[in-house]
Lab assay of single mutants.
Amino acid sequence: MLDDRARMEAAKKEKVEQILAEFQLQEEDLKKVMRRMQKEMDRGLRLETHEEASVKMLPTYVRSTPEGSEVGDFLSLDLGGTNFRVMLVKVGEGEEGQWSVKTKHQMYSIPEDAMTGTAEMLFDYISECISDFLDKHQMKHKKLPLGFTFSFPVRHEDIDKGILLNWTKGFKASGAEGNNVVGLLRDAIKRRGDFEMDVVAMVNDTVATMISCYYEDHQCEVGMIVGTGCNACYMEEMQNVELVEGDEGRMCVNTEWGAFGDSGELDEFLLEYDRLVDESSANPGQQLYEKLIGGKYMGELVRLVLLRLVDENLLFHGEASEQLRTRGAFETRFVSQVESDTGDRKQIYNILSTLGLRPSTTDCDIVRRACESVSTRAAHMCSAGLAGVINRMRESRSEDVMRITVGVDGSVYKLHPSFKERFHASVRRLTPSCEITFIESEEGSGRGAALVSAVACKKACMLGQ
């Protein structure tokens, strides 16, 4: 009897593995994704193909990295998701002549009506938060230079001027797309009239992360975010950046690689679950690469896999709870928690219980395998993109072996128990001629924006502006 049951459990697990095998990517698959990513990057950089390229390769006008001589107080704003952060950054000489960066910050959550109302409502709310922060720190009387981390696709015309191309991540505030974001912020500050600010720089969160990590390690020339969304930036040779005049030196390019796949480059790798996630998203047909990796989508992918296993009578005796059938019910943090389970399955059992399920031991094991399959594919897909960037940098610099540091931020990278190990191992397999160091950014977005502002202020002083 026991043997029969054991055989049935083994057969069930084997069927589960057959279904989950769809998520496995072979090294040849990853090399294919990497080569296609490089081709799209090239198209994004070139003037004649930029418009139709899915990977936009947006110039950021960040050319210099901090040298350690900029000092002063800077205000930093960070808008990239449902939370908005205001930070005071003091850049100065530390002990023994070292450079020191001290920060104080406060988080504000953005109400739904500000995210989806008008641009005026959104930026009025942001300036209200700045006003509140300055009151708390008794700094209303000071006109501070301000660095703005704005983590949406922007076409820069200068370091302090950028046109919002399109909202992502659930934002829909009308009247912002096609307009200068810094102008919208300046107008809102003017409307309030109770404080003055000098907006000197606007950067993407990947750029802010790279600059913040450069402060720790001067070989950091790539910034990457794996959180709600997924994106990367890197220092490109100016001669390859056709959208900006000049051939000397390097400029940081914001790849906006989340949109890779929007022209069909990933079609052969998309599964039924991916198509369902895409169809029910706020932007169907867009940001397809990001939807395979980002935390906004990972939990939902797992939920759809679990429903398939229920329908195949391989999980929960073929019956799903009402909660499990509800879109968004299986949160991405559950994926991390399930994979963090120590082996007694308590954590998995508790999560499934909150979803109205009474799982068996085998159910718990199957749910864990589903989570591992989805998150491992995410790590491997992400590795193909980064390997594409790094191999490109090595080739354009004609280096036999390139040493490089990548600064990384984002909740999936930082909080998932195995993502970074799987990701690092896969990147290294795909970049055999590179020695890569990964560092995690601390308060990256805010500190990085302030350091970019410090560079901009120093330049302005040198130019006598």
Rank of each mutant, 00 (worst) to 15 (best):
A6K: 13
R7K: 14
M8Q: 09
M8E: 11
A10H: 15
K12V: 15
E14A: 15
Q18C: 11
F23H: 03
E27L: 07
D29Y: 08
R36S: 05
Q38P: 10
M41Y: 13
R46D: 12
H50D: 01
A53K: 09
A53T: 10
A53L: 03
V55A: 01
P59L: 01
Y61C: 06
Y61H: 02
R63F: 00
T65I: 03
E67Q: 12
G68L: 11
G68F: 06
S69F: 05
S69I: 09
E70K: 04
D73L: 01
F74H: 03
L75V: 03
S76A: 04
S76Y: 06
D78G: 05
D78M: 04
D78E: 10
R85L: 10
R85N: 08
M87K: 05
V91L: 06
E96P: 15
G97Q: 04
Q98K: 14
V101S: 02
T103F: 06
K104Y: 11
Y108A: 02
E112R: 11
E112L: 10
D113Q: 12
M121F: 13
M121V: 11
L122T: 07
F123L: 05
D124H: 07
D124G: 05
S127R: 06
C129A: 06
C129G: 05
S131F: 08
D132Y: 05
F133I: 04
F133T: 06
K136F: 08
H141G: 04
K142N: 14
K143L: 02
L144Y: 10
T149E: 12
F152I: 08
V154N: 03
H156P: 13
I163D: 10
L164N: 13
N166L: 12
W167E: 13
K169S: 13
F171N: 08
F171E: 15
G175M: 09
A176W: 13
N179H: 09
G183L: 06
R186G: 04
R191G: 04
R191A: 07
D194E: 14
D194V: 11
F195E: 05
M197S: 03
M197P: 15
D198R: 00
D198Y: 01
V199M: 12
N204V: 10
V207P: 02
T209A: 06
T209R: 03
M210L: 01
I211W: 00
I211S: 00
S212N: 07
D217N: 03
H218Y: 08
C220L: 02
E221Q: 11
G223I: 00
G227E: 05
T228A: 04
C230L: 02
N231D: 13
A232L: 11
C233I: 00
M235S: 08
M235T: 04
E236V: 01
M238G: 02
Q239L: 01
Q239G: 12
V244D: 00
E245D: 09
G246N: 00
D247Q: 04
G249I: 01
G249R: 01
T255F: 14
T255Y: 14
W257R: 00
F260W: 05
D262H: 13
D262F: 10
D262W: 08
D262P: 08
G264Q: 12
L266M: 12
D267L: 06
E268N: 09
E268I: 05
E268W: 06
F269R: 03
F269S: 02
E272S: 04
V277D: 03
S280I: 14
P284I: 15
L288S: 14
L288M: 14
K291G: 14
K291E: 08
I293M: 07
G295T: 14
G295P: 13
E300L: 01
L304D: 06
R308S: 06
R308G: 04
V310W: 03
N313F: 11
L314Y: 07
L314K: 12
F316L: 14
F316M: 13
G318M: 09
R327Q: 14
R327L: 13
F330M: 04
R333F: 04
V338R: 00
E339C: 02
S340Y: 05
T342I: 02
T342P: 03
I348C: 08
S353Q: 06
G356F: 09
G356P: 09
L357N: 05
R358K: 02
T362I: 04
T362E: 13
C364L: 05
C364R: 02
V367A: 02
R369P: 00
E372M: 03
S373N: 04
S375P: 03
A378L: 05
A378S: 12
C382V: 08
C382P: 02
S383Q: 01
G385D: 01
L386E: 00
A387I: 02
G388S: 13
V389A: 06
I390Q: 00
N391M: 08
R392A: 10
R392M: 09
S398T: 04
V401M: 05
I404N: 10
I404C: 11
I404S: 04
I404M: 03
T405Y: 01
T405P: 01
G407I: 02
V408D: 01
G410W: 09
S411W: 10
Y413R: 09
Y413S: 07
L415N: 06
S418W: 15
F419S: 02
R422M: 12
R422E: 14
F423S: 04
A425S: 15
S426H: 04
S426Y: 08
R428T: 10
T431Q: 11
S433G: 08
C434A: 13
C434L: 07
I436H: 10
F438V: 03
E440D: 10
E443G: 10
G446Q: 14
R447A: 14
R447P: 13
A449S: 13
A449P: 08
A450N: 11
V452P: 07
V452S: 08
S453C: 13
A454F: 13
C457Y: 11
C457W: 14
K458R: 14
K458S: 12
A460P: 11
A460W: 09
A460F: 15
